[in-house]
Design a protein around this nucleic acid. Structure first.
Length: 646
RNA sequence: GCCGUUGUAGCUCAGUGGUAGAGCACUUCCUUGGUAAGGAAGAGGUCGUGAGUUCAAUUCUCAUCAACGGCUCCA
């Protein structure tokens, strides 16, 4: 007998060789019908795989990630079976479940056959047909030699490649129906669980993710245990699309792109510019209070500047090609740091000058690959909330923490809760290529940053190979409405450029020392930040950021004069406001104003005019009652000044 | 940059080998209406751009540009 410990601490005994599924059945038949996989001592495996040792057991259903992933993984195999039956001779690479987007994909070599949208519908039908057969997923362990022979005979170079990295004794195959695949599992008990199927798109994907390799065909899909859940998922996708900043940005007149201007070059319209100015106001106030000094630098510089900084050898591909004037190459700046370093270097510095914090909303140009451009989130001209802090080693921890605190302060203002702080480290294998070749300094600064984060109890994840070329960084990762991940803000350590630029300060004991540099951009760039805010607020900006704050809605043109009086009081109080003087009915005016997401509407008619009042309507909330002008203005001013998100 | 899809009015979209249509928005007129769409009329597009096939191309073919979905990249 073996002892099975359940999540609630209960321990029960079962015969050796009992499967988790049988254990589920022993509890209840209803439970067993929901079990997709099982977590055994924390390891997710097939629910049908016998247990030979005492273990802790958690039965996993659709509600658990482990259950879902097994479900989608099995769905990928089901899709592969359908593909194989419709496109004989296809060779498969890998087909994992995915979290974002939810579902799975399978990469395959169709040998020149092109797959179409119609084929996806045919594949879905085939999958549904196969699923109904309730084929069980059968696990089989296989010696490496036999597996090699199997795929050699099949002429499957992809699976042979996979096998090379696997050790004898850990090779397993899974078979359902007519499809057999090299796979470590786990899988769901049988195909019958898969009730709703949607193949979402076809894409090219480089083999092993390397652009030098052949491009395989990738089919994305998602499946659910019921049609209802699929419908809900599709409805949710539709909702997400409504939050897409590209759609909202157009509807609200925030920004536009134009073919004649160029790809990735956003034109900020009057409404967007108001938001930019509010953000800059916030940044300037915050930075002034934190001891920053503002600077302004040109958009271009000579080649030599970027040779000194070290950017050219590492990032030339991402810069616009140079223009040559009088035999000298000039580049559009892709970053502000070299310019700021030159400001630091312009005057001799003493330790008394440090920390020196130079801030600029700098305009940068980056020649992003055409396929990477994405609305405002990935552009070629960007306005960065940039600053560089020059400090001593002793000051570093405090300065780094202060920057982090500034992030958190901003996040609170904007109600940003869903983000991940990522400690981006160097990859030792790419020293000298992607990262400057200073192994000891890398480790030293990485430890420094890690300690500051831990000391300040800021939760973070560590990722190798995401650092800047000159040092490690803390990136704040966020997600767009349609699920794409972006770095919103960044806080970077630079132990390289100070030396490259011969930046020095005189220490207390009259020595020369090179400062450490912190690059930071808590508000990222206007482009990405406003793109993010559009989606974050679904276009419903808080009053302080809203391009139009109040719309005055007279019930008929009889009240046009009173409307102008009301408008004038608002304007005198610096409230962004307009009158809707169209000869439309009030219901129409309200509808249009609601759709344009203006925070406040002031409805005025005979009653209000006679009493010298206004009827206030709040966007999304409806009528909130009649008020005096003074009362309303004082309230809305308080809301604006406090940058309230209510 | 690579694979795939798309490109018709300001927006959303229909449509055709014989030089185009709807709804919303816009303009004008009527209406002066109390909290999410009052009515009528009108204006608006050489169908992304260039070339080819054809008596004839917005429609078919090719190229090109751009956008979109991925991949790669992301200081």
């Amino acid at each position: 007998m073996i002892k099975i410990t359940f999540p609630d601490g209960a321990v029960r005994e079962y015969a050796e060789g009992t499967t988790p599924l049988e254990i589920a059945k022993s509890i209840s038949e209803g439970l067993a019908k929901k079990i997709l996989s099982a977590s055994v001592d924390g390891q997710v495996q097939d629910a049908t795989r016998p247990l030979y040792k005492s273990a802790s057991l958690k039965l996993l259903s659709w509600a658990d990630d482990g259950g879902k992933f097994a479900f989608w993984h099995s769905s990928a195999h089901l899709m592969a079976e359908a593909v194989e039956s419709l496109f004989p001779g296809v060779k498969f690479w890998v087909g994992p479940p995915t979290q974002n987007p939810p579902g799975f994909y399978y990469d395959m070599d169709l040998g020149g056959t092109q797959i179409t949208e119609d084929d996806l519908r045919r594949l879905e039908a085939k999958m549904a047909e196969l699923a109904k057969k309730n084929e069980v997923y059968v696990r089989k362990e296989m010696p490496k030699s036999e597996a090699l022979r199997y795929f050699t005979e099949k002429g499957d170079e992809y699976k042979l490649d996979l096998l090379q990295n696997l050790n004898d004794g850990e090779i397993t195959f899974y078979t359902q129906g007519n499809f057999t695949d090299l796979c470590r599992g786990p899988h769901i008990p049988n195909t019958g669980f898969i009730k709703a199927i949607k193949l979402t798109n076809i894409a090219g994907a480089y083999w092993k993710g390397d652009e030098k390799n052949k491009q395989l065909t990738r089919i994305y899909g998602v499946t659910f245990p019921s049609q209802k859940e699929l419908d809900e998922y599709l409805a949710m996708l539709e909702e997400a699309k409504k939050r897409d900043h590209r759609k909202l940005g157009k509807e609200l007149g925030i920004f536009t792109m134009d073919d004649d201007v160029g790809p990735g070059l956003a034109l900020w319209m009057p409404n967007g510019t108001i938001i930019i100015e509010e953000l800059e106001k916030l940044a300037k106030e915050t930075e002034l209070a934190a001891g920053y000094k503002r600077v302004v630098t040109p958009h271009i510089a000579k080649e030599n500047l970027y040779l000194t900084s070290g950017h050219l050898p590492y990032y030339q591909d991402s810069m616009y090609p140079p223009m040559e004037l009088e035999g000298v190459k000039y580049y559009l700046k892709a970053m502000n740091c070299p310019h700021h370093h030159k400001i630091f270097a312009a005057e001799p510095k003493s330790y008394k000058d440090l920390p020196l914090r130079l801030a600029e909303y700098g305009t940068c140009y980056r020649y992003e690959q055409s396929g990477e451009l994405f609305g405002l989130m990935r552009v070629r001209c960007l306005h960065m909330n940039d600053a560089h802090i020059y400090c001593t080693k002793q000051q570093f921890a405090q300065e780094f923490k202060a920057v982090n605190d500034m992030y958190l302060k901003y996040f609170k203002i904007f109600g940003i809760e869903k983000y991940i702080m990522r400690l981006s480290l160097h990859d030792p294998e790419k020293l000298g290529q992607k990262y400057i070749n200073e192994p000891e300094l890398w480790v030293e600064t990485e430890n420094l940053v890690r300690e500051v984060m831990i000391e300040n109890k800021v939760p973070f994840v560590e990722v190798k190979g995401e650092g800047a070329f000159y040092g490690p960084k803390i990136d704040v990762q966020i997600w767009s409405a349609i699920g794409r991940e972006f770095t919103l803000a960044t806080n970077q350590v630079d132990f390289a450029q100070g030396r490259r630029f011969n930046l020095e300060f005189t220490t207390k004991d009259n020595r020369s020392e090179t400062p450490l540099i912190i690059h930071r951009a808590p508000l990222g760039t206007h482009e990405r930040f406003i793109g993010f805010l559009l989606e974050h607020y679904a276009g419903n900006f808080p009053t302080w950021l809203s391009p139009l704050q109040v719309k005055v809605l007279p019930i008929s043109d009889k009240f046009a004069d009173y409307a102008q009086t009301v408008l004038q009081s608002l304007k005198n109080a610096d409230i962004r406001s307009e009158v809707d003087d169209r000869s439309e009915k009030i219901g129409k005016k309200i509808r249009d104003t609601e759709l344009s997401k203006v925070p406040y509407m002031l409805v005025i008619g005979e009653k209000e005019m006679n009493e010298g009042k206004i009827a206030v309507r709040k966007h999304g909330k409806g009528d909130v009652g009649t008020k005096n002008m003074e009362e309303f203005i004082s309230e809305i001013k308080t809301e604006i000044m406090s940058r309230s998100s209510l």
